[in-house]
Design a protein around this nucleic acid. Structure first.
Lengths: 236, 236
DNA sequence: TCGCAAACATGATTTTTATCATGTTTCAGC
DNA sequence: GCTGAAACATGATAAAAATCATGTTTGCGA
């Protein structure tokens, strides 16, 4: 047991400067602190399932989570990658909808749950937070639209390079400064890129041959970010 | 000049029951009525350009507009189709960002412009409208995520069928009850589906052979919606 | 209404990507 | 450390889709 970890108050939460919720007025931060429910999820465990109704929002205190949408043929499509400080579950709640995707822990993860009523009450009374939520939604919408365009127009090689850079941006490196700080299977990377697992494996081998990355099991080292960026062929 | 058309007041606007803005409190509807600027755009004219900064939001009074995003290689990707009552330009404004896409009139279109300051003031003071905006953003985000998954996982034939049904849902039929009530070039349909123009032309011919649609220049008639739906292979 | 450019159409070919098959490695659990 | 299942890897093949080429139609402006 890790005695240094303490999520008993939002005031001492390790994410108190990262989350959107830290932008709420103090009285509401206190209310969240009183009503939140903290939970731990082991790698692979499900926070919520696509198709079920939301009863609150989640804030990641520590760990990593994937949001994945089930395609019509049952194939997974990873929609978003989330890290400490990120909020999830708000989309369905604000739409008044079922969850459009499932949230699954990519590693052992600590999460605070904020009940729907409290979340809505705060949004109603705290204009600042409401604007933050609108900004968050707008940013996500923009990212989705860009990804959509790339999915429609770019070859898989470019999309894989872009995805590796995206993972780097999201989770960063380990202490060595080159190893991606997350363990994703080839299949998960494929489901992020939107391609077949074999194509991903093959292209990763190519990237290794080209000296852009190094592969060591699930560990992926980014050797030449600039070459990857060039391969991704991003203009905007 | 059409004497029957009158957009002088929001109270008599033909879209006063369709737009999100009609959900604002009365005092704000009056404020919008005073400050809005109405404009007409001819087919092909640009309402705003990707990359420029927003200074307000637009509400379509009459007509049709496409929102398209420029891919890295300059190829158009149509992100959204808009009709009377729809609002556009809010995404960039709420993100504090440049426009992520250009808005172009698909036919002669009448639009009301609402200045940024007014829009923000109303959102700050009218919680109901703020929630409506959050719902709007959430719904758009959900649609984008579903489209993203389909783009990644479904073959072009299914996506074209889905797109035709989507156009039907958005713009409906002409008086005859079968002709899609919008003129889109094959290239535009391709840029909506995310494929090459030739592939779209070929598949439309196939659909015609299969008796699902009829083609008469740019007019597309939906003969068998149920067969199209089956071809689209939608589960959700 | 004539001419002409753009849009539409279709065949041939090439490229890209998925699928299938098969072998190897890795790693969790005994 | 052994073992078996899952993940990784790679070659061969097939399918899907883009591109290239060429001809036809359409519709707009002079």
């Amino acid at each position: 047991m890790n005695l240094h970890y303490d999520h008993s108050t939002c005031q001492t939460c390790s994410q108190r400067f990262n989350s959107v919720f830290c932008k709420a007025r103090e009285e509401y931060v206190n209310a969240i602190n009183e009503q939140k429910i903290c939970n731990s999820y082991k790698k692979g465990q499900v926070l919520f399932n696509e198709g079920s109704y939301p009863f609150g929002v989640y804030c990641i205190n520590d760990g990593k989570v994937k949001l994945s949408h089930q395609g019509d043929d049952g194939k997974e499509q990873i929609i978003r990658l989330l890290k400490a400080g990120d909020v999830l579950g708000y989309r369905a709640l604000l739409s008044g909808d079922r969850y459009g995707a499932s949230a699954i822990a990519l590693e052992d993860t600590k999460v605070c749950f904020i009940p729907k009523e409290l979340f809505v009450t705060i949004l109603k009374n705290d204009t600042g937070l409401a604007f933050e939520m609108m900004k968050l939604l707008s940013d996500e919408l923009h990212k989705a639209e860009v990804k959509l365009t790339h999915l429609a127009q770019k070859p898989i090689r470019e999309r894989l390079a872009e995805t590796l850079l995206f993972i780097k941006e999201t989770y960063g490196f380990e202490e060595d400064g080159i190893t991606l700080n997350v363990r994703l299977s080839r299949e998960e990377i494929a489901n992020l890129v939107g391609t077949a697992t074999e194509s991903t494996i093959r292209l990763l081998s190519d990237f290794k041959k080209d000296g852009m990355v190094d592969l060591d099991g699930k560990k992926i080292k980014i050797l030449k970010p600039s070459l990857l960026l060039q391969t991704a062929n991003l203009q905007d």
